[in-house]
Design a protein around this nucleic acid. Structure first.
Length: 482
DNA sequence: ATGTCC
């Protein structure tokens, strides 16, 4: 029987497991929660995983968990951990299997009323032009030579090949490209990647047409370019089988590194390497290649969504366009500079199921948004609200500039399948005027809103903690799922 | 998350 976790309340929605709670912890573990979510969070293994993360060498300040925390592979999902760059710890478990899984938000020049009557045709056209579900299927099949260009250039590949506009690149985190040497990617990953360029995937991935339901901050909404009733599109997906294979490959390689160097781990799933070692350098480069794969994936899908809007809404007899508001990643480790005890320090920041949330005037934010902090996209569970938020200076100080990534699961996929029937869920959505087009009933059950926390609660925890500014809330009209 | 076991 594991020992009961004790923690101190250090702010209204912030709790801390002290460094002396368990032998081996190098820093305290902090998590954001409300009275409502506390019972859910302590119900799974996620806080034990967070304590294990606090035991890793070179961790800075504290192991952090966002309010959407739940257990994952090694590190909890909804976790943030920053390591000293000189020590160089990098860990695949701190990134996740779906490397650079992320969300992008597009805004159309159309109003809810204009799209409402055509929603089923539009959804269907997108559904058949954007492959969904597990396995093969892609908007475009590429040769190994072209794939390697994608792995190096990210979303720039799509733009160069006419899947988008060069302006899109300004509104993607890191401009849709991280530095990557693709020679560190396995042959098997290459094989899997060739046939999935421009595909949605399954699980919690989705494509959603919705509208801006309410505005919380007019000034920030104006800067981001959203108004009430604007029709928007969210695309949530990642690096597909390619990223999965990279993760699998390097968990194995780094496991050998751990054995070779006689390193004791609090959990076998927490394998890591120094980024300065050959193994660590290999993972960092392969991870970045997978990140580029995902950036490009979302860009190619965007192109097909745009074409579907144009074709399907010809009846409106007006030009239809979709502008990219922002594209964020919530599964990545990045080298960033942060102020620690008054001094700038180079860190390796792992965000797993956590979104970057840089505050105003950060150099990484596009000029147009410079004064407002970066846009943060928090999709809710299927058929519920999603949020557009802005990063704050407080997030820079308290969470290495990080926020949550969604509502966060409250039960396993297996448990959700047993608890919720797909047909009933589809009916419930339709009563709310939300049209669902899904590849598998199993997938629908697994993604039942009842298997997730309430996204409103999760966002309010971060908002009341000062980590994010609420900008707008989005309501779905139609959802496409794998 | 994932050709849910190469």
């Amino acid at each position: 029987m594991a020992k009961k976790i004790t923690y101190n309340k250090i702010d209204e929605n912030l709790y801390e497991i002290p460094e002396d709670f368990e032998k081996g912890m190098n820093v305290p573990a902090r998590f954001y929660a409300s009275r409502n979510t506390l019972g859910i969070i302590t119900n799974d293994n996620s806080l034990n995983q967070l304590i294990n993360v606090a035991k890793l060498p070179g961790i800075i300040k504290y192991a952090l968990a966002m309010p959407d925390i739940h257990q994952g592979y090694g590190f909890p999902i909804g976790g943030v951990a920053a390591f000293d760059y000189d020590g160089g710890l990098i860990s695949p478990g701190g990134v996740g299997y779906d490397i650079n899984c992320g969300v992008r938000l597009l805004k159309s020049n159309l109003q809810k009323e204009e799209v409402q009557n055509h929603i089923k045709d539009l959804t269907s056209m997108i559904y058949y032009s954007c492959p969904t579900g597990t396995g093969k299927g892609a908007c475009v099949n590429v040769s190994e030579k072209e794939l390697r260009k994608i792995l190096q250039n990210g979303a720039g590949w799509a733009v160069k090949n006419n899947y988008g506009d060069s302006r899109d690149l300004d509104y993607i985190e890191d401009n849709g490209q991280l530095t990557a040497d693709d020679s560190y990617v396995s042959k098997r990953a290459i094989e899997r990647g060739k046939y999935q360029v421009g595909s949605l995937g399954s699980g919690n991935h989705f494509l959603e047409i919705g509208y801006v339901e309410s505005i919380y901050n007019r000034k920030l909404a104006q800067i981001y370019g959203v108004r009430e009733n604007d029709v928007v599109v969210q695309i949530h997906c990642g690096s597909r089988g390619f990223g999965h294979q990279v993760c699998t490959d390097y968990l194995k390689k780094l496991s050998s590194y751990i054995n070779k160097n006689n390193i004791n781990l609090p959990d076998r799933q927490l394998v890591y390497a120094s980024i300065h070692s050959e193994e660590g350098k290999g993972y960092f480069n392969a991870m970045n290649a997978a990140a580029n794969y995902a950036f490009n994936n979302r860009q190619v899908l965007t192109h097909y969504v745009r074409r579907s809007f144009e074709k399907s809404l010809k009846v409106l007899k007006k030009p239809v366009h979709l502008d990219l508001i922002y594209d964020i990643t919530h599964n990545i480790a990045k080298i960033e500079s942060h102020t620690i005890n008054g001094k700038k320090k180079k860190l390796i920041v792992h965000r797993k199921g956590a979104t970057r949330a840089f505050g105003p005037n950060h150099e990484a934010i596009p000029d147009k948004y410079k004064n407002s902090g970066q846009p943060i996209l928090v999709p809710g569970s299927m058929g519920t609200y999603s949020y557009l938020l802005a990063g704050t200076e407080k997030a820079m100080q308290d969470t290495f500039g990080s926020s949550c990534h969604g509502a966060g699961r409250t039960m396993s996929r297996t448990q959700a399948r047993k608890s919720f029937g797909a047909n009933k869920l589809i009916l419930q959505l339709s009563k709310k005027d939300i049209h669902l087009q899904a590849k598998s009933k199993k997938g629908v059950s697994e993604e039942a809103p009842g298997a997730y926390k309430n996204v409103n609660d999760v966002v309010n925890i971060l908002n009341s903690s000062g980590l994010v500014e609420k900008v707008a809330r989005l309501r779905p009209m139609a959802v496409i799922k794998g």
